[in-house]
Design a protein around this nucleic acid. Structure first.
Lengths: 129, 129, 129, 129
DNA sequence: GTGGTCTAGACCACG
DNA sequence: GTGGTCTAGACCACA
């Protein structure tokens, strides 16, 4: 499904939550799809089950998934943009900053990077993850 | 210079480090520019001086800045690792794909993302999240 | 495991780091051995836990150990940078010359120094100065 | 005369003191030779004059050099081994530990390193430093 | 119980 | 005044 980056200082639970939100936002997980069980995902990610359970709990409190006892955890009807106002702004800034830093470190001029972006977009090449 | 986002699960020191790397990578801090003093930046960001010191230490071990004892901390000459050929191409593609995926997640149209990129590059204000 | 020398101007964290690198380099700590816990080593050496944590952090960023969150810190597989040819020769010569010079400074005859080397290699007790 | 290693966590004053003791012990500086002036050495090492002055002061208190006002600083008659008992032991251990660590990291077996040592010694090749 | 982050505050090395 | 080292101690993430 996805992988964790142990070198990222971001806590595991935040990495997991982000990845699930991403999967939903990009449509890889659709409404009423079932999420992996806590234990299964814990095994896949080589993480303690408590960590996954914490994430599912937070997603449920956020109204993004729904847990039916004894059945499983499911994606709820997507209400709209999953990120709102200031949060959206903040995340966009973070994305853009990282992109600028990494292209600059690669020695790629911004113009070239943008051209690459547009080109890549046209050919429909995105790998979700 | 930049701001921290206390709601971001990313540790403060990592937010600070990212912001400084960004400033250097984008040329807002140039070779041999002096960084703010540890204590000054700590005051500006309202964090403990040790937190800033930790960042400066890591940047130094990473070879990105140079500290002269009793004088201050300075941006080092960028050696330009300069990846070339297929490696550079491959890395750029990875960066771009991730950027496309993540902006899509946020529901940000590519045009808006590019505008944001260019604007941010120009005006250099960052919220280091 | 080893001892610190408080009269040595070398910072404590550097003494600790050197001792651990020595233990790994000489095979006293082997790949995937667990290091002492941060708190335990701090108690043994009578230093603050933060000081040990700093060392472990640096060793991790240097790629020498690996920490698994909530589990512990482990020696990584030695990749063996394996310098070869003239480079290896050159580096070895530099090491040897420095060693000869410095033992001469101390007035230690080469025979004694070599005996010390072999003994220390065998019994592995170090005073990390 | 010698160089400082800015990446060594050892304080500058300790590096300088060690180098001067080394020069005396190895005979590069002989009894009644004049040391460079504080200011000259400070310029050569690109260090603040206070730092050098501190070292000269300590060497004088240790009875190793003698300052004649308005004339200069001179090496005193060497009384014997410059390092005594526990200090000698400690320093030898430090030397040996570093040597073991560095050869091991180079992937040089101890036997080979010792052979190299003996060979190098025979051919009289030492560079004081 | 494991490592990691952060703070407050002392003291040192250096200019 | 600059950065660096160390301590004590709180709190967090993870197993």
């Amino acid at each position: 499904m996805f992988e964790l980056d142990p070198t990222d200082p971001t806590p595991l639970y935040a990495q997991i939550e982000r990845a699930i939100r991403l999967a939903i936002a990009t449509g890889r997980l659709k409404a009423w799809d079932q999420l992996p069980t806590v234990r299964q995902l814990a095994v896949d990610l080589r993480v303690n089950a408590n960590t996954v359970a914490k994430v599912y709990g937070e997603l449920e409190r956020a109204g993004i998934v729904e847990t039916r006892r004894g059945v499983g955890t499911f994606v709820r009807q997507v209400t709209g943009t999953s990120f709102s106002g200031p949060d959206r702004e903040r995340r966009l800034a973070a994305l853009v900053d990282r992109f600028l830093t990494e292209t600059a470190e690669l020695g790629v001029p911004l113009d070239e990077a943008i051209a690459f972006l547009q080109n890549r977009r046209k050919h429909g090449r995105t790998s979700a993850g």
